[in-house]
Computed example of a mutant assay.
Amino acid sequence: MIRLFKYTCIDLFAGAGGLSEGLKQAGFTILAANDFDEAAALTYKYNHPETKFIDGPIQEVSSEYLLYLTGLQRGELFCLAGGPPCQAFSVYNHQRGMHDERSGLFREYIRLVEGLMPQWIVMENVTGMTSVEDGLAIKEITESLKALGYDVQHRVLKAEEYGVPQERRRIFFIGNRLGIPVEFPEPTHDGVTRPFVNVEQAIMDLPELGVNDGSEVAEYTNPPFSEYQKEMRQNSSLLYNHTSPNLGEINIKRLAYIKQGGSWRDIPVELLPAGMKRARRSDHTKRYGRLALNGLSCTILTKCDPHWGSYFHPTQDRVISVREAARFQSFPDRFRFLGSRVEQYKQVGNAVPPLLARAVGRQIIKTTESTQRVLEESLC
């Protein structure tokens, strides 16, 4: 019979804590976490005060210390989660590849799997991992974990299919060494019978801002009008991080021409950046884009820079605020980001959307409990 422990978890490469937040919502207890980014660590500790956080590079974290810190024995941890840095695999990195030293950090995760022998593993990364050197990293991850006794499956999940108001694709590795099925969560939204959560439903209850405006701590000025807004506001009496960045005069001029759902194509040629004046109409699809109220947010990156995507507010002449970016990532409003505004945007963009992580966590618990019931009934 499977020996069940409380749904304990350790989160590696935890960043600000999006994966931890979602797994907590699913019913996991995050015992310990690690990251080397100082600003992200501050945010993590603030929002997950019950979790023992280890500052510093993953290379200096041993499985022995994690076991000591959590009070567990090898093999007792329910789940080891983590998202090794993805920059080496990102399509936005034109020098990406296995030669990038960051591309090998998944091996640190595997090293700790071997030392801890958790019952389940969850690893997340960008979909670019599938194309770099013909998916070499995916093959190494799968084979290494298989050699340790794990049945591991991977799949690209679409965040919008799990209630996240954003176009976002991420590859998830899920596995266990318990001999039970590895199942991925079924989508909850299909865009037809259950529409995706759109931009209007995600952010339009938030106070209006100007350029370089807002406050780190503020009050709501409007009631929520969508179920998503109500969910995001749960357990939050104040509004955090609703601040927008500055815009140069040239971008303010450009923005005046961009219609809702529009992009750089709406901007007069003389106002375009020099490198885009000769661009084909099919190129740079979402650059200098203004979000559409009835559409999804584009992928939230570590910089909500309009030069790289649709980050202009749908009805206000500014870039989306940190809180709006966090809403598009499905962070609840009670989740406060610390550090400078630049660091806050980076933390939001690097995170796993909590609602996507919650769906994964719930499926793991569901699979484990249903298998346990079948085993118990067979012994009766």
Rank of each mutant, 00 (worst) to 15 (best):
D37Y: 09
Y288R: 03
Y65Q: 14
T142N: 10
E324T: 01
E133Q: 14
A40P: 03
T368K: 02
V164S: 11
T70D: 03
R102S: 09
G349Y: 05
S282Q: 13
A40C: 10
E343W: 00
V269R: 15
Q329N: 10
Q201M: 13
S20R: 01
F53W: 13
P187S: 11
T221N: 11
A359D: 12
G191V: 10
F225W: 14
C380D: 13
K259R: 14
P314K: 08
L355P: 06
V348A: 07
D333Y: 01
M1R: 03
F28V: 01
A326R: 02
T243W: 01
R74N: 04
G214S: 09
P314T: 04
P354N: 08
T315E: 11
E60S: 14
E183A: 10
G82W: 00
A14K: 00
A14Q: 02
D55H: 12
V322E: 02
D213G: 07
N212L: 11
G214C: 04
E249D: 12
D151E: 15
G22T: 01
T315F: 00
Q25I: 01
K158G: 00
Y46P: 00
V113L: 02
S90E: 10
T371G: 00
F225A: 09
R265L: 15
Q363F: 03
K45A: 13
R290Y: 11
A359L: 09
I2C: 04
V126P: 04
K259A: 09
M117I: 04
N34M: 01
G115K: 09
A26F: 05
N241K: 03
T127N: 09
V319G: 01
S63W: 05
C304V: 13
N294G: 14
R280A: 13
E114P: 01
I141W: 06
K158R: 14
M117W: 08
Q166A: 07
D100G: 04
P118A: 06
G56Y: 05
S330I: 01
S263V: 02
P207F: 04
L116P: 06
F13L: 10
S321E: 07
L31F: 04
N222T: 07
T142S: 14
A359E: 13
Y150E: 11
P223W: 03
R318T: 02
K158S: 13
G163L: 07
V126F: 09
K158M: 12
I54C: 12
E270C: 03
E200P: 00
T193S: 15
C9A: 15
C304I: 02
P165A: 07
E270T: 06
L247W: 05
R3W: 04
A351H: 07
Q153T: 05
R170E: 11
S310E: 15
F13M: 04
G115F: 08
G248W: 09
D55I: 00
Y65L: 09
